[in-house]
């Protein structure tokens, strides 16, 4: 029982990340009709916003390390510690949550620049050309990050107060043996909050209503005198913020490196296809579904029946879903058809 609950939580956690990326991908595809292969790079850029915040907060003065006698060594003492003592250290400890302040404006700006500077010229081009140009963009972004931050993963730990595990067994009345890392629970709650926020924004605001209407019938909305294009540009920025926040919050789980976006991108595209191209609900549903299936497929009991199933489960499910429902779980007629 414990194992099932833990794998379900692992799946929800991973599914949260897939869903957030897939949500952004679907928003962009639904509004602008662009297949954005640079979306994984946006996830990675968000993670590097956390790294940047950590680096800013740990800007240090070099002080000679007298405990090293073999050679002249230096240890770095952060200015925040020198200036504010324990309060400074506390700020450094909270660098990942504090990175929200950096991630939202930076990612919004990156999204807007990306759309205005490049993507808008490819609206009327074929999907193949869109894929090529956005994939190329992703490689360029990766290489820039590699040049600036290096190729190695950079540890970005969660604040100490949530570094350990939560005693979820006691909460659920299953005994004290069932524990789950605090940060992963926070990530799960965070994903759910962002997904709910995006849906609420689209459903309950006038802006959202126009965007939804534009997704259904862009021409008619335009004929009503509404500048749909401007709103879609903002949607691109919002999708970049969602992907960026997903990446930023993922850093304590997986120390970021320049390649992390690509690893998530491939799976997220499978998620979008399984959920149904252009369906926001489908993207979220498929994200969680595939995350959970991937986790359960890793259980030894399952692998003893079908060895290696954990490596292929996502693609296997995609094949089956597309056989049974060619438009994906919640796909609409007419999207990417004809």
């Amino acid at each position: 029982m414990d194992a099932v609950i833990l794998q379900a939580l692992n799946g929800l956690d991973k599914g949260g990340a897939y869903a957030l990326i897939a949500l952004g991908l679907t928003l962009i595809f639904g509004t602008l009709g662009v297949v954005n292969f640079a979306h994984g790079a946006l996830f990675m850029l968000g993670a590097f916003c956390a790294v940047t915040m950590q680096k800013l907060l740990t800007l240090s003065r070099q002080i000679e390390d007298t405990s090293v006698t073999f050679f002249k060594a230096y240890k770095e003492v952060p200015y925040l510690k020198i200036w504010f003592g324990d309060t400074g250290l506390l700020l450094i400890d909270y660098s990942v949550p504090l990175a929200v302040l950096l991630t939202i404006p930076v990612m919004l700006l990156i999204g807007l620049i990306m759309e205005r500077g490049l993507i808008q010229y490819f609206y009327k081009r074929s999907h193949a050309e869109q894929i090529l140009v956005t994939f190329g963009l992703a490689i360029v972004v990766q290489e820039i990050i590699k040049a600036v931050f290096g190729a190695n993963p950079i540890p970005t730990p969660a604040p100490n107060v949530v570094a350990g595990s939560a005693d979820i067994g006691t909460w659920l009345g299953l005994g004290p043996t069932l524990v789950y890392p605090w940060w992963r629970l926070i990530y799960l709650a965070f994903s759910a909050a962002i997904i709910a926020g995006v849906f609420a924004f689209l459903r309950f605001t006038t802006f959202g209503m126009v965007v939804r209407a534009g997704m259904q019938d862009r021409e008619t909305v335009g004929l009503l005198g509404i500048d749909v294009q401007r709103r879609f540009t903002i949607v691109f920025g919002l999708a970049a913020v969602v992907a960026g926040l997903a990446g930023m919050m993922y850093t304590p789980i997986l120390p970021p490196d320049y390649h992390m976006g690509m690893e998530f991108l491939v799976l997220s595209f499978v998620v979008v296809v399984v959920g149904g191209m252009g369906s926001l609900e489908g993207a979220v549903l498929a994200g969680f579904l595939l995350g959970i299936l991937q986790s359960f497929a890793s259980m030894n009991e399952v692998k003893s029946i079908i060895p290696g199933i954990d490596q292929i489960i996502v693609y296997l499910v995609a094949v089956v879903v597309l056989q049974v429902r060619p438009r994906g779980l919640l796909g609409r007629r007419g999207v990417m058809e004809g």
Binding site: K14, L254, S298
Partner: peptide, 23 residues
């Protein structure tokens, strides 16, 4: 008890660590 193979560069090992807890 068990020897489980993990792909090189798996990144998130949670799904492989969880089964250890109750093994």
């Amino acid at each position: 008890v068990k020897a489980v193979r993990t792909p090189l560069g798996a990144g998130d090992f949670s799904q492989y660590i969880t089964p250890v807890l109750n093994s």
